[in-house]
Nucleic acid binder design. Sequence first.
DNA 1: GCTTACATACCGACTGGTTGGTATGGCGTC
DNA 2: GACGCCATACCAACCAGTCGGTATGTAAGC
Lengths: 204, 204
Amino acid sequence: MLKLDARIKLLNAAIEVVRKQGYAATSVDELCKKAGVTKGAFFHHFESKNALAIAAANHWSETTGALFAGAPYHAPADPLDRVLAYIDFRRELLRGTPAEFTCFAGTTVQEAFATNDDIRAACKASIFGHAETLVADISQAMRHHKVKGDWTALSLALHTQAVLQGAFVLAKATGDAAVAVESANHLRRYVELLFNRSTKDKSK
Amino acid sequence: MLKLDARIKLLNAAIEVVRKQGYAATSVDELCKKAGVTKGAFFHHFESKNALAIAAANHWSETTGALFAGAPYHAPADPLDRVLAYIDFRRELLRGTPAEFTCFAGTTVQEAFATNDDIRAACKASIFGHAETLVADISQAMRHHKVKGDWTALSLALHTQAVLQGAFVLAKATGDAAVAVESANHLRRYVELLFNRSTKDKSK
DNA sequence: GCTTACATACCGACTGGTTGGTATGGCGTC
DNA sequence: GACGCCATACCAACCAGTCGGTATGTAAGC
């Protein structure tokens, strides 16, 4: 029978291994071993290691995109509640080891931003593309709650991603999710304060 | 004497090159070339590449520690003003290319956290040690402005570092400091809101 | 129905260059 | 003449990438 899954197995292996030990420290042989395929399969599907990184970043965008699209935080009627529910959802994802809950794009872009512009662009597209899915809810929340400031919905959306990426860094430094959860709590509190929402029902 | 110590030159080279291209992608030969010394000098001062990473993290702690200790943000009488001035100071440092203003410890810990615990610990000490220098001002600000919440001075100090580390990641993704400056503005606004400080005199 | 031709998916031994690390020896200073 | 400091030469391991090959399917030609 024809096996078409070598490519997918390699992409999943890349996301798993690179998040744990970084991109440059991960060899092609190691990925092949993890994926259970040979080097021939690797270079059949990807013309280079860098090409795999780009494909893996796109794969990461797709899988996480599907996860967030199907998440329950879109349910509330009030757009602000949706934004707060998003932050809660992100906080709930902070479980297990840092290698398990951190971001492939954020990890990879730190290593490749100055040396490979295609990888940098693919990682940027992943992070910024996700941020853009938050803009509609934030914009509606600003109008609905009559909030105006010298900041835009996009800048707040990107700030949420900055907080999460930074929380990942601190979690890696400690080896524990706790410090990341604390930052997510601060992020939630910031949004509550921006929109004058009482902080009483926070699930901390 | 003009001739700087080979050790210091290697440490400075490591901080410069690793911030640009990551730790694993940086070879010993490359560092020696950058520092203008030979491999013999490298392995005379450091028993391994990993040992250099630990020493570089400690060196980073010392040089940045001196920078922040001598910075003007300690001047204001009101502790809250000192905290806000700290954030402004960090924002002003966001100039040039990402490789120039980002954090060696944050960059390195992402690559080494799961594979080398000594490097991880040295990077954690750098980031957390800096955060701890903020705790006194935040604690005083909480008492002085009679602010209480379900958060601690240390957790806010660590949150500032998370925001900055995340801002670095986004800056690397875009290749530009602008997105990091925006996150620093959000961080300042959060602290102002936490302490009920008017946001009129912000220098955005 | 059978041949020929070509495309896709994958295998694994191999290569040339690079890697972190070593062995040894020179040189200035105490 | 011991010792810190550093240079040169070298090595085994590992690296990304190559290449000739196999297995399977597909489709045209007759």
